[in-house]
Simulated assay, not measured.
Amino acid sequence: MTESTLQTAVTRRRLLCGCAGLLAVGLGACSRGGSAGTALAPVEADAKTSCALDGMLLADYPGPKGQLRYKDSEQTVWFCDATELLSTLIAPEQVRPVAAAWVQDMAQADWERPVGHWIAAQTATFVLGSRKHGSMGPTSAGFANVADAQAFATKNGGKVLAFAAIKAEDVDLSGGVRHDGRM
């Protein structure tokens, strides 16, 4: 092998290794689902976190909360009630692509002061229409597994539904006062 042929082989090998490295980095970032190689994960609300729909402070109210991130933003959008989040996700006019959405697993979180225990909304099982109220009255409680949702519904009433089975009319936000006798 001549020196020129050897240099060409080394240069070609470096080029191929460099391309393979760039491909691996690019695929790694894609598989994590975030920009700049960061994985999407739920975050915790603080005392000043407010609901995107009505400005209510999440910390001031009981019941399950929700959060989401849109694909075109790194900002977390908060909901003081899980029904508000579900309505946003399921509404037929929802056209802004969602990167991730979370609700709290109410088998783990304290109803009066829910903190943590975030699960993907699309994989949760929900109880709609129970006697337990959240910040906006009747709410949707999310659970990581069906057995916990069924146990909650047996104790507190309500209908058990997988996320995919929830229809827009199940989480309609119009006429809240009509549906809540406490107001």
Rank of each mutant, 00 (worst) to 15 (best):
M1W: 10
E3K: 12
S4L: 14
T5N: 13
T5W: 08
L6C: 07
Q7M: 13
V10Q: 11
V10E: 13
R14D: 08
L16C: 08
L16Q: 14
C19S: 07
A24L: 15
L27W: 10
G28N: 08
C30D: 03
S31N: 04
R32N: 05
R32P: 00
A39S: 04
A39L: 04
L40Y: 13
E44L: 14
A45Q: 12
A47N: 14
C51S: 07
A52W: 04
A52N: 09
L53S: 12
L57P: 00
L58D: 03
A59F: 01
D60Q: 05
P62L: 03
G63E: 00
K65Y: 09
Q67M: 14
T76R: 13
V77A: 11
F79V: 06
D81C: 04
T83H: 01
T83L: 01
E84N: 02
E84V: 01
L85R: 01
L86N: 01
A91W: 04
A91Y: 01
P92E: 13
V95E: 13
R96K: 14
V98M: 12
A100T: 09
A100D: 12
D105E: 06
D105L: 05
M106H: 04
M106N: 05
A107F: 03
Q108T: 05
D110S: 12
E112C: 00
E112V: 04
E112R: 06
V115I: 07
G116K: 11
H117N: 13
I119W: 01
I119H: 00
I119R: 07
A121E: 08
T125F: 08
V127R: 10
G129Q: 09
S135N: 05
S135D: 03
S135F: 00
G137E: 05
G137K: 07
T139C: 07
T139W: 07
F143A: 09
A144L: 03
N145G: 03
A149M: 08
A151F: 05
A151E: 15
N156S: 13
G157W: 10
G157K: 10
V160T: 15
V160F: 10
F163M: 11
I166T: 03
A168N: 06
D172W: 00
L173W: 02
S174V: 07
G175Y: 07
G176V: 05
G176R: 11
V177I: 12
R178K: 13
H179G: 01
H179V: 02
D180L: 03
R182S: 15
R182Q: 13
